[in-house]
């Protein structure tokens, strides 16, 4: 392989995975930007959805990507219930309690998954999983291409909803100025419920995707929480729009390090910690709104 080709391939690989990162991170950013709530159990919803996809695929043979709308709705409801039952009671209790609670939930769900599904690595073997298309000597995994396209569609939808609909305006209003929103009659409770529903719904779609292009195991979710955090910190805490370029940066950096550094894949795990660090230094953790 020529150097130029290698470079191109690394770039393409990075771009192809960034969609799934953006989906996972935008939910985290939404919860942070609107509800001012850092959900450390965010990744566990990805993990649960990944197993859900695996079970449905192995039982009914349904393609997980085609089930996106159904899974989104199911996990939206799960997210809303999660808000009502667990998040709402700690919202006024301060950040430390929120972190402890969501970290506890995260560990609980990981072990629950270990108990039910076991520790073995699982995947969904859709027929196009190993299929690739080539342009100019660079390979595009068909599954990854589908996943990137679906991510773009979903993110564009989210932005359209936030910008153009009544609900979207209310979400932005509560995010920017909670007191001002309350004073013109916006019920922040229902806005929080919807925001967390969307966040968990997006996580679930990312989870289905990861079961196709990566592997599902009980601990996979926390990995995505960390990557999501790196992206969210890079984008500016709570900034839903900045998530796109930060995800691209994370995906591409990871891919380049995997390709060009000796033993690179071992290093790529450290990248998002460096990105959190760099993000904090550069952005000074300014809390942004949407």
């Amino acid at each position: 392989m020529y150097a130029g080709q290698l470079f191109g391939q690394a770039l393409v690989n990075g771009i192809l995975v960034s969609g799934i990162y953006a989906l996972a991170a935008s939910g985290l950013a939404l919860a942070f930007g609107v509800v001012k709530f850092l959900n450390l159990a965010h990744g566990e919803f990805l993990m649960l959805a990944a197993y859900f996809g695996i079970i449905v695929f192995s039982t009914y043979g349904l393609d997980p990507l085609l089930m996106t709308p159904v899974v989104f709705i199911l996990f939206f409801i799960l997210g809303a219930a999660y808000y009502k039952a667990l998040v709402k009671p700690v919202l006024k209790a301060g950040e430390l309690n929120q972190l402890l609670l969501t970290f506890g939930i995260s560990i609980f769900l990981q072990n629950l998954a270990l108990l039910i599904f076991g520790g073995t690595i699982r995947t969904i073997s859709v027929p196009y999983r190993t299929h690739t298309i080539s342009f100019w000597g660079i390979n595009f995994g068909t599954a990854r291409l589908f996943i990137l396209l679906l991510s773009i569609v979903l993110l564009v939808l989210l932005y359209q909803v936030l910008q153009r609909t009544r609900v979207g305006r209310s979400i932005r209003a509560v995010s920017q100025e909670p007191e001002g929103a309350a004073l013109v009659g916006i019920d922040s409770e229902s806005v929080y419920l919807i925001a967390l529903g969307i966040a968990v719904g997006f996580a679930s779609v990312a989870g289905m995707m990861l079961s196709i292009i990566f592997q599902a195991e009980p601990m996979v979710g926390f990995n995505f929480t960390l990557k999501g955090l790196a992206v969210v910190v890079m984008a500016g805490l709570g900034n839903v729009y900045g998530v796109i370029w930060a995800s691209l940066l994370l995906g591409i950096t990871e891919s380049f390090i995997g390709v060009f550094l000796p033993n690179g894949t071992g290093w790529s795990g450290a990248i998002f910690f460096l990105m959190i660090l760099g993000g904090l230094v550069v952005r000074q953790s300014r809390v942004r709104t949407i």
């Binding site: 932005r172 100025e177 001002g180 309350a182």
Partner: peptide, 23 residues
């Protein structure tokens, strides 16, 4: 709650204005 009072017809224009600055 404030939102319910606003919906019932009493609306407060606060001292800090509390506008949605990015809208």
């Amino acid at each position: 709650l404030p939102a319910r009072i606003a919906r019932f017809g009493m609306t407060h224009v606060p001292e800090g204005r509390n506008l949605f600055g990015l809208m």
